[in-house]
Design a protein around this nucleic acid. Structure first.
Length: 783
DNA sequence: CAGTGAGCGAGCTTCCGCTTGACTT
């Protein structure tokens, strides 16, 4: 029998709190929400004032039963879910589901997991805030109505199993619009002019002084004209100014900024970062990792101070309080920080260590003094021109927080000329010009989103929550709207002009531009769905939709508005759009006519087909009539990286060069084609991949194809550990994850206690009968 | 999991946000 039962959301949190509270308190976890809207149908009774139909989630039945039992026994139940909209709703659902007696139930909240904060919370319990709960119900019902009314429209008008939602559809829109900006973009170029002068340093040694012309020349002629002027010019120092400047550290990590920095500095994907952070949290190394707050507890600020005093000295310390500026932030937790700030490293995997170190540095730096710099600007006259060269130098007077941590930037900046210390020069000094370089530079196209920069953008717009950033990224990829890919760059030529020893030399050089690594690209399905949604549901796709409804949720939370009334006002015009789209909108297949075949004159077009984007040669109907054409059209799938929107007639023609017949082997036809997993040879209804970067499907010959077939056969033979004459369908194979049993297209794990090479047929059959009959067919990871 | 693209129809798909394991051909 336990006196006090405390319920929190996370088991790791429960463990910590139990230590603070002592013997009279039992701390349990609800593992997040315990109830949700019914999964099938709307889960909302629209006719009946939007009454939600809640059911206990299947994976929460056990927890609920246990909590029910414990809460019956306890004298007092303390519900300590987070103090935000979702947390309040969890508290309410718990009270409902557990059938808690109001008289013995207390609602408590705290924003930091410190003993002080928790004891204080216990002393000051409050009542459940039903307005806040209602705001959550409105959020939940609105998301359900939007998702479950719009998605079926897509199934009918575009393709089955697609989805739309308040958050995911806007995320896709961002990526689609950025891609179109990039496609539209035409770079302009200009000549950047830099000069190197020879000067003496403090020791009398000759060193380079680098300077740049603040303006660029648009044409080669202008550039050349300027260089001509430089030939006989005198270069002298007109002015030297020095200006102090300061830099301040960035705020401690939130989920979004942690994801961005871990991506930039450590190369982690958004979901990788969260998985690693979760482990650090569970091991008590860091505070909660799903937060939108930059706030540090008083304890943390003090420990940071002590740590900085001890390791770097007092002058490196500065107390700083940060204010969260993210739209819609709910600040139920602290910022992400080390639990024990005095520990600058932890045990764990290499990945955990690196992420911890990043969090530690960011936290410490956030409590450190500004860096102090001095920027020197030297202006250099050109006697034959009214233009000036400018040299800048930056000296670090005091490193401050830079000693520990510097935030990275997303966009690689162009002139990465690290301004350092300038050599000693004085006004009126005449300089010895070594050379002047003019390089043609191109304007940069807008950058494609990375996972992390998309998260930043979503957060800026107040779309999504810390717990959903990583899932959003997977959803839009799982639905096939977006792919994360590398793309090779293309060669580009640029001109250079150099003036050296009174002579001007011209040259044309090549560079690689537009290469992308792990960037988000819209697929053709993504483009089609996005355009369809914008046309028919602009209200939902609008970037400010979330902000608008959030403002209304706030009114509900303040008790100023009835939640069902808000939903009602939204639903009627929205539902009308749904009906309208179902009845009047065209099926969207994004068909585009590319032109005619140069020899046969047949029409070549591209569109979205049942299995994805395809190119079509010839027509299905005869001319303008509905009669089927005498000759069936030919089809070919688009290759990865190709898009309906940008493919050219020439590229489409290439697609029809495959499949090719190479000849016969063992009396069966050998063909070569390109499939979803790249080029392959097909023989006797078996597939053999071509070797990457070695074989070309357009030129490969029969003898090489046979070689590939034989190599694969040999490899397969080696993968077989055991076969049985009695039942040839049972085989013990060696796979990617070690030995396994294959039987009738299904696979079974071999228990560790058994040696695969000693398995008898009976033992295999036993494993097969006991083993989970999971299909091997790849299933989407959805729940 | 690779090839396909006539048409019909049954039955299915889907949201966002709060939490962890289970499990991996």
């Amino acid at each position: 029998m336990v006196e006090n039962l405390v319920i929190v959301e996370s088991p790791a949190k429960a463990k910590t709190i139990e230590k603070f509270l002592g013997k009279d308190f039992l701390v349990m976890s609800s593992f997040g929400h315990v109830r949700d809207l019914e999964k099938k149908g709307f889960g909302v009774d629209i006719e009946n004032n939007y009454t939600p139909k809640y059911i206990v989630s299947t994976d929460k039945k056990k927890v609920v039963t246990e909590l029910k039992k414990l809460s019956k026994e306890a004298k007092t139940v303390w519900i300590a879910s987070d103090e935000d909209r979702e947390g309040e709703a969890i508290a309410w659902h718990l009270m409902e589901v557990l059938g808690l007696d109001v008289a013995k139930t207390k609602r408590i909240v705290f924003h930091e997991i410190t003993k002080e904060a928790i004891l204080k919370a216990i002393e000051t319990p409050r009542n459940l805030d039903i307005s806040l709960v209602n705001a959550q119900q409105a959020r939940r019902v609105l998301d359900r109505l939007v998702g479950f009314e719009v998605s079926p429209v897509l199934w009918k008008k575009v393709k089955p199993a697609l989805s739309a939602g308040r958050v995911q559809s806007v995320a896709v829109r961002l990526i689609v619009e950025r891609e179109r900006e990039i496609n539209k973009f035409t770079p302009t170029s200009a000549f950047r002019v830099t000069a190197i002068f020879k000067v003496k340093d403090a020791n009398g040694k000759t060193v380079d002084l680098k300077a740049e012309l603040p303006q660029r020349f648009n044409t080669k002629e202008e550039t050349l004209a300027f260089l001509e002027q430089c030939k006989n010019a005198e270069f002298s120092i007109a002015d030297i100014t020095t200006k102090p400047s300061r830099r301040s550290p960035a705020a401690p990590f939130t989920t979004s900024t942690l994801q961005q920095e871990a991506s930039r500095k450590l190369g982690y994907s958004v979901s990788q970062t969260m998985t690693i952070a979760q482990r650090l949290y569970e091991n008590g190394k860091i505070t909660y990792m799903r937060t939108d707050s930059v706030n540090l507890s008083g304890l943390a600020i003090n420990t940071a101070k002590e740590t900085i005093y001890d390791t770097l000295g007092e002058k490196y310390h500065k107390v700083r309080q940060y204010k969260t500026k993210a739209k819609g932030a709910q600040e139920a937790h602290e910022a992400i920080r080390p639990t024990y700030i005095q520990n600058n490293s932890v045990d764990g995997t290499a990945q955990e260590k690196r992420l911890y170190e990043l969090i530690w540095k960011r936290t410490i730096a956030s409590q450190m003094a500004d860096a102090e710099l001095e920027k020197t600007t030297v202006t250099i006259n050109v006697s034959t021109s009214d233009k000036h060269f400018v040299a800048t130098g930056e000296v670090l007077k005091f490193d401050g927080f830079l000693r520990v941590y510097l935030e990275s930037k997303d966009d690689e900046e162009e002139n990465g000329s690290d301004a350092g210390l300038l050599p000693p020069v004085k006004v009126n000094d005449v300089l010895d010009m070594k050379q002047v370089d003019c390089v043609q530079r191109f304007s940069l196209k807008p950058p494609r989103y990375t996972e992390a920069s998309l998260v930043r953008k979503l957060e800026e717009q107040g779309i999504g929550r810390p717990s959903t950033y990583a899932p959003i990224i997977s959803t839009i990829q799982n639905r096939g709207y977006v792919v994360k890919e590398d793309r090779e760059g293309v060669e580009r030529q640029y001109d250079t002009l150099t003036l050296k020893k009174g002579e001007i030399k011209e040259a044309t050089k090549t560079e690689i531009t537009g290469a992308e690594k792990s960037k988000l690209f819209p697929t053709d399905i993504g483009l089609v769905v996005n355009d369809y949604l914008i046309k028919n549901f602009e209200m939902i796709l609008n970037y400010s939709f979330t902000a608008n409804v959030e403002a209304q949720f706030d009114e509900i939370a303040e008790g100023e508005r009835e939640w069902t009334q808000m939903i009602d006002e939204f639903y009627h015009p929205f539902h009308e759009k749904v009906e309208n789209a179902l009845q009047t909108s065209e099926k969207a297949n994004a068909e585009r006519i590319l032109g005619n075949h140069p020899e046969t004159g047949k029409v070549i077009s591209v569109k979205i087909g049942r299995y994805g984007p395809l190119a079509q040669l010839g027509e299905t109907t005869n001319g303008d009539s509905d009669e089927p054409a005498e000759e069936k059209p030919q089809f070919a799938s688009l290759r990865p990286g190709q898009s309906i929107e940008t493919i050219t007639l020439e590229e489409a023609l290439e697609l029809f060069k495959l499949p090719r017949q190479l000849g016969e082997y063992e009396e069966k036809v050998v063909t070569v084609a390109i499939g979803r997993f790249g080029p392959y040879v097909r023989h006797d209804s078996k597939f053999f991949s071509l070797e990457k970067n070695v074989d070309d499907p357009l030129t490969i010959q029969l003898d090489r194809a046979i070689e590939l077939i034989e190599v694969k056969r040999e490899k397969d033979r080696k993968a077989v550990i055991m076969t049985y004459d009695e039942d040839p369908e049972v085989r013990v194979l060696n796979g990617r994850f070690g030995p396994y049993i294959s039987y009738k297209k299904k696979n079974y794990k071999i228990p560790k206690s058994q040696k695969p090479e000693e398995l008898s047929l009976e033992e295999c059959m036993k494993i097969i009968e006991a083993g989970p009959k999971k299909a091997t067919r790849g299933k989407k990871k959805s729940k």
